[in-house]
């Protein structure tokens, strides 16, 4: 393949990575923004979403689309409830103290991961995509005979991958409407701005925290259900999304939602493109190091406001 089509293929892969990443990172960002909690167990909620999707599709059987459709709704709900429960039982008791929350969520990480290992097992298990048509893509070239459209061999994608990108966009818009146009969203934003004042105005801050923690975990699980037909479900699969989501949230500015979206696009696209053309390990080294540097020299991130 020539450079142009190759680049296009890499960008498409990057767009799929970005789509999943934006959902996962959004969950992390909302939780940090509203609760000021760094949730290290976020990657495990992602993994749980994928594992639940496998259980649901296997349990239901039948046409892959049926199981997948159910999983798309049920898995995020279950994971969200579990997270809200964990918030009630653990995080609330330690008063959301920043250091202790990190330690507690590290503990949650191991509990979720190892429980999955004991029940689901160490194998990677696939979930069948609801639909998976191979779509060849055209490439436009300005050759000797003027403008020509060619169909280069290997330049193709699947309908499912396009669906993932579309679904992420829809969810993002829904989330935006939810946060800016509904009463619950208003309450969440009020809690984010000043939890004490919100409490004084009768906002049940404790409940809002549980809801937000559940919502964040649910978003990660949703991203995982979408990714599981492309990448298999495995008990250690939460590690990479956690690091990437961290990177995105930091680059975008902790708690800044528009920043998160932009950073997810930036990181996802460059991850897709760099790892096609260079060694994936080198790409990761550069990305991780750059993020640490961003945090050192610009702790508020690219779009973040200065920390209160």
């Amino acid at each position: 393949m020539e450079f142009g089509p190759h680049l296009m293929l890499a960008s498409l892969e990057g767009a799929v990575i970005s789509a999943i990443l934006v959902l996962t990172a959004m969950g992390l960002s909302i939780v940090f923004g509203v609760m000021r909690v760094v949730n290290v167990a976020h990657g495990e909620f992602f993994m749980l979403g994928a594992v639940l999707a496998w259980y649901i599709t296997t349990l239901l059987g039948g046409h892959p689309a049926l199981g997948f459709g159910v999983a798309l709704i049920v898995a995020p709900l279950l994971v969200g409830c579990l997270a809200a429960f964990a918030d009630r039982v653990i995080l609330k008791r330690i008063n959301y103290d920043p250091d202790r929350t990190i330690v507690a969520t590290i503990g949650m990480l191991y509990i979720i991961q190892q429980t999955t290992l004991m029940t689901f097992g160490p194998e990677a298990r696939p979930v069948e995509a609801p639909f998976n048509h191979r779509l060849s893509l055209p490439w436009f070239e300005f050759g000797e005979n003027g403008f020509a459209m060619t169909w280069p061999w290997g330049l193709s994608t699947t309908s499912y991958k396009l669906f993932v990108i579309g679904a992420a966009v829809v969810v993002l818009i829904a989330l935006w409407v939810f946060l800016t146009r509904t009463k619950i969203g208003l309450i969440m934003r009020a809690t984010q701005q000043d939890s004490e004042t919100a409490q004084a105005f009768g906002v049940p801050v404790g409940q809002v925290y549980s809801w937000v923690f559940g919502l964040g975990a649910g978003l990660a699980a949703l991203g995982a259900v979408l990714v599981v037909p492309i990448q298999q479900a495995h008990y250690l699969m939460g590690h990479d999304p956690l690091l990437l989501a961290f990177i995105v949230v930091i680059i975008g500015g902790l708690g800044s939602l528009p920043g998160t979206v932009i950073a997810a696009l930036l990181i996802g696209m460059s991850d897709g493109i760099i790892s096609v053309f260079f060694s994936p390990t080198l790409a990761k080294i550069i990305a991780t190091f750059l993020v640490a540097m961003v945090l050192v020299f610009r702790p508020q991130g690219l779009l973040g406001k200065t920390a209160p």
């Binding site: 653990i90 191991y110 509990i111």
Partner: peptide, 18 residues
């Protein structure tokens, strides 16, 4: 008893912080 021994570490961490 189990190969998921890191589960113990997780439980201990959570119990400790609480």
């Amino acid at each position: 008893y189990t190969n998921a021994y890191m589960l113990i570490a997780g439980v201990v961490l959570v119990l400790l912080t609480v």
